[in-house]
Each structure stands twice: as structure tokens, then as C-alpha cells.
């Protein structure tokens, strides 16, 4: 079986998919390393202002030049990875935990519990992320916590719904009935037969969505609602570069390119994972 799978796909399968996966893996690895070891990697303090070196061009001393306050762009970019990715991962974990818990309770319990939970979810799903973010920030003030809260509040319901339908589907499988008949209690049956499958699907979903969440975080920070200057974050950096957009466009292009690259790096493996792990597609191959 494994031999057939390894030899059958056309050459294009290897070149595009495998290469895409390898490259995105490499990019994600580099990004994670940058985020984890920002203090070691960054050559300068990202917030250190050096007015003598304002808008310095790229040079060995400042690899990517400096911004309008003479702060080292390379260092700000590296520290920005930490802020952006940190926020995105935190959001992803919060959404997964909330969505999974609510969704599996709803799906496994069924009946009225399910009906009530689903109506609540639908309520949350009607809010667009940006509108809710603006509302929360208007009420609670600017800051990353509120942005994270806004994104989590507008996204968890989608996950809860998907997990709910998955759990409902799984709980009616014959092998779950068989497991009940074999003497497994509700918790045992859930942990042994439903949880592993549901969690793998959820991880794929979250991976697919990481890029989308990064866009939200950076977008809101760009608008000055999320992470506040002078803390380095990609969205904040693009905003800072607005005044120099004609004289020094690279100040906006570089963090923009980082966002682009990161979103791409998360979306490619998400797509491939979905294709590989979706049973309906996997069977067809």
C-alpha cells in the first residue's frame, strides 16, 4: 500500500506540494526562532532612538536601515515577529479551547442544550471582527488585550459550530455505539473515540486561520487600536512609515512583506494539510 502511494502521484505532486510545504516549514521555523530568540538575534534595542542615524540606508551597521526616529529596522522587525506571532498564537489557542469546549458539549449533549448553545453562537457570528473590535476598544480603551478579546469573541463560534457538527457526526458512528456497548462511560468514549479525531480537524482549521488572524492583529495595530507604539509590531511599523512612504517606501514595504510572507507560510501547509487529512479527498487520491 505504502509503495503505491509513494510512487503513484505525478511529478507535479512532489515539485509543487512538497516544495511548498518545505519552504513554508522553513519560513515558519525561522519566524518562530526569531520570535523566541528576539533578544539574541536583534542587533539593537528596537526602541532605542538615535536621531543622528534617522532614515539611514541599508548598511552593514543597520542591515535594513533605520526609521524616522533612527531605530534599527532589522531589530524592530525581529521583535515585531514576537509581538505579532505571540498575539496570533495566543488567539488561536484561546479560540481552539473555547470553540472545542463549547462545540463538543453542544454536539455530545444534543437536544435543548445544543439548541440553546447554537443560538448563542449564531449571535456571536453576526458580529464582524472589526466592528466588535472598534466597539470593545471604544468601551474598554485601546490595547492588545482588547484586540485579542475582540478577535476571540468573533471567531470562537465558527469553531464551536464546526466541532459540534463533527462531534455529532462522530458520536453516531457505529464504533462509538460499539464502544458504549463495550462498557465505556461517556467520558471514556469521548476521550478515546471522539477527542483524537476532533482535535486533529480543529488543528487543521486553526492552522488555516492563523494567517487570517495575523491580518486582523496587524490591521488593528496599523489603525492604532492594538499594540501601541513604540512597541515594535508589523502593523505599527507600517503605520509609522506612512509619513515616509514617498521618500523611504522600504520602511512600509519590509514589514508588509513580512506579513505577506507569514500569511502565505501559514496558508500553504494549511491547504495541504486539509487536502491530505480530509478523508473524502484522501480516498479519492
Amino acid at each position: 500500500m505504502s509503495e503505491i502511494v509513494l510512487s503513484a502521484p505525478a511529478a507535479g505532486y512532489f515539485t509543487s506540494r512538497r516544495l511548498g510545504l518545505a519552504l513554508s516549514g522553513l519560513v515558519i521555523f525561522c519566524l518562530v526562532m526569531m520570535a523566541l530568540f528576539a533578544p539574541q538575534i536583534a542587533p539593537y534595542d528596537p526602541m532605542e532612538i538615535d536621531l543622528d542615524a534617522r532614515l539611514a540606508p541599508m548598511s552593514p551597521a543597520h542591515l535594513l536601515g533605520t526609521d524616522h526616529l533612527g531605530r534599527d529596522m532589522a531589530s524592530r522587525l525581529v521583535w515585531g515577529t514576537r509581538a505579532s506571532l505571540g498575539a496570533v498564537f495566543l488567539i488561536a489557542v484561546l479560540i481552539m479551547v473555547t470553540g472545542f469546549t463549547v462545540g463538543s458539549i453542544s454536539g455530545f449533549a444534543g437536544g435543548r442544550v445544543d439548541t440553546v448553545i447554537m443560538r448563542v453562537c449564531e449571535g456571536f457570528m453576526t458580529f464582524p471582527t472589526f466592528i466588535l473590535a472598534l466597539f470593545l476598544i471604544g468601551v474598554l480603551g485601546t490595547g492588545m488585550t482588547n484586540v485579542i478579546l475582540a478577535i476571540v469573541l468573533t471567531h470562537w463560534a465558527w469553531y464551536a459550530r464546526i466541532i459540534r457538527s463533527l462531534v455529532m457526526n462522530l458520536k453516531n458512528r457505529t464504533y462509538v455505539l460499539a464502544a458504549k456497548a463495550a462498557g465505556g462511560g461517556r467520558v471514556k468514549v469521548f476521550l478515546r473515540h471522539i477527542f483524537p479525531q476532533a482535535i486533529s480537524q480543529l488543528t487543521i482549521l486553526a492552522t488555516l486561520d492563523l494567517g487570517h488572524m495575523l491580518l486582523h492583529v496587524s490591521g488593528l495595530s496599523f489603525l492604532g487600536l492594538g499594540i501601541q507604539p513604540p512597541t515594535p509590531e508589523w502593523g505599527v511599523m507600517i503605520n509609522d512609515a506612512r509619513q515616509q512612504i514617498w521618500s523611504n517606501p522600504e520602511l512600509a514595504i519590509i514589514p508588509g512583506a513580512m506579513i505577506f510572507l507569514t500569511v502565505l507560510a501559514f496558508n500553504i501547509p494549511g491547504d495541504i494539510l486539509r487536502d491530505r487529512l480530509d478523508p473524502s479527498i484522501a480516498d479519492a487520491e
Binding site: R173, T174, Y175, L177, A178, A179, A181, R192, H193
Partner: peptide
């Protein structure tokens, strides 16, 4: 119990 569809009856 032994069900009809053995493929569906095992994880």
C-alpha cells in the same frame, strides 16, 4: 454486540 458494517464498527 456485533454490528452489520464492520468497517464502521471499528475506530
Amino acid at each position: 454486540v456485533v454490528f452489520q458494517n464492520s468497517h464502521g464498527a471499528v475506530n
